[in-house]
C-alpha cells in the first residue's frame, strides 16, 4: 500500500519535474541561456489555471491547453524583446538578465495577487478511486494522465515534426542549421515560447496538487536546473529522465530523513552530480556537450 503510494506520487511529481526540466534544458541547448526566471513561468501558469477555474468555473485540466498557448506567446515575446539582446554576451549577462526578469515577475505577482497561498480545488478534489484495496486520490490520477500525455506529445513533436527536428538541429549545430535554411532567431524565440508553455502546464498541474503563491517558482528553478544537470545540460530527453530520478530521490529522502529535507535533496544531488559527473548521468549522446 505504502509502496504503491510512493510509486504514484513519484511518477506524478517526476512527470511534473520532467516537464519543467525539459523546457529548461531546451532553452539551454538551443541558446546557451540558463533561464533563472523559469520558475516564474511556472508560477504564472499556476495563477492562470487558478483564475480561469475561479472566474469561469471550468475544470482545471481544461485550462491547460489555453495556458500553454498564453505562456508560449509570452515566452516568445520575452525572447524576442529581451533575451535576444544578451545571446552574444557572456553567460553572466544572461544570468543577470533572467534574474532581473524573475524578480520582476515575482513582484508583479505579489502586486497583482497578493502574497497569500491559494489552491485550485475542483469539485472532485476529495474523491478517491478504490482499486483492489488501494486508494488513489482521483486528482492525482488525472495529473498523472496529463503528465504522460504532455511528455508523449513533446517527444512526438520533437522527433517527428519539421519544427521539432529543426529545434534539435539548431541546438546541435547552429550554423549548419542556418545553412540548411533555418531562421535560427525564429527558432530561439519558438524554443523559449515552448519552454514557457511547458512551464505553464507544469504550473497548472502543480496548482491542483499543492498550495502556491508568487514565490512558488524559486525552488522550482533550482529543481529545473538539477533535473537538467542530471540529464546532461542541454539534453531534453535526459531532463525527462532526470525529472523522475529527482522526484523519487526526493520522496524517498523525505520518507527516510524527514520532511525538512524535501528541498535540500535536489541541491545535494546537484552538487554530487556536478562534482562527480558534470556531463550528467543520463545525457543523450551529442546533445549534452558543454558549450563555453
Amino acid at each position: 500500500m505504502e509502496s504503491f503510494q510512493f510509486v504514484v506520487n513519484g511518477l506524478m511529481l517526476g512527470g511534473i519535474y520532467a516537464i519543467v526540466g525539459a523546457g529548461f534544458a531546451l532553452v539551454y541547448g538551443v541558446m546557451n541561456v540558463l533561464n533563472v526566471a523559469h520558475g516564474s513561468f511556472i508560477m504564472i501558469g499556476a495563477y492562470l489555471t487558478y483564475w480561469t477555474v475561479t472566474l469561469l468555473g471550468v475544470d482545471p485540466f481544461v485550462t491547460l491547453p489555453a495556458s500553454a498557448v498564453a505562456l508560449f506567446a509570452f515566452g516568445y515575446l520575452v525572447q524576442r524583446t529581451v533575451i535576444s539582446r544578451v545571446l552574444h554576451a557572456s553567460i553572466f549577462m544572461t544570468f543577470i538578465l533572467t534574474f532581473g526578469l524573475d524578480m520582476f515577475l515575482i513582484n508583479a505577482g505579489l502586486v497583482a495577487w497578493g502574497g497569500s497561498y491559494r489552491a485550485v480545488r475542483p469539485s472532485y478534489a476529495d474523491d478517491v478511486l478504490i482499486m483492489g484495496g488501494l486508494t488513489i486520490p482521483y486528482v492525482r490520477l488525472v495529473v498523472l494522465v496529463a503528465v504522460v500525455a504532455v511528455i508523449a506529445l513533446l517527444l512526438l513533436f520533437m522527433s517527428k515534426t519539421r519544427l521539432g527536428i529543426a529545434i534539435k538541429a539548431t541546438a546541435l549545430e547552429r550554423e549548419a542549421a542556418q545553412l540548411a535554411g533555418v531562421d535560427v532567431k525564429q527558432i530561439d524565440a519558438i524554443t523559449f515560447g515552448l519552454s514557457a508553455a511547458l512551464a505553464g502546464v507544469a504550473g497548472g498541474l502543480l496548482a491542483v496538487v499543492l498550495p502556491f503563491g508568487p514565490f512558488m517558482g524559486v525552488p522550482l528553478t533550482g529543481k529545473a536546473f538539477t533535473v537538467a544537470v542530471l540529464g546532461g545540460l542541454g539534453s531534453m530527453t535526459g531532463a525527462l529522465y532526470g525529472g523522475f530520478v529527482l522526484a523519487f530521490a526526493e520522496i524517498g529522502g523525505v520518507i527516510a530523513l524527514g520532511g525538512e529535507w524535501a528541498d535540500g535533496i535536489a541541491f545535494i544531488i546537484l552538487l554530487v552530480v556536478l562534482v562527480l559527473r558534470p556531463r550528467g548521468l543520463l545525457g543523450k549522446e551529442f546533445f549534452a556537450e558543454v558549450k563555453v
Binding site: K168, A176, A177, A180, E285
Partner: peptide, 20 residues
C-alpha cells in the same frame, strides 16, 4: 558540421527544411 545527434535520415531531411 553534421547534426551528430540526429539520424542520417533526419540530417538529410534538415537539408530539405525549406520545402519539407
Amino acid at each position: 558540421r553534421l547534426f551528430f545527434g540526429l539520424s542520417v535520415e533526419d540530417n538529410l531531411k534538415m537539408g530539405g527544411y525549406l520545402t519539407w
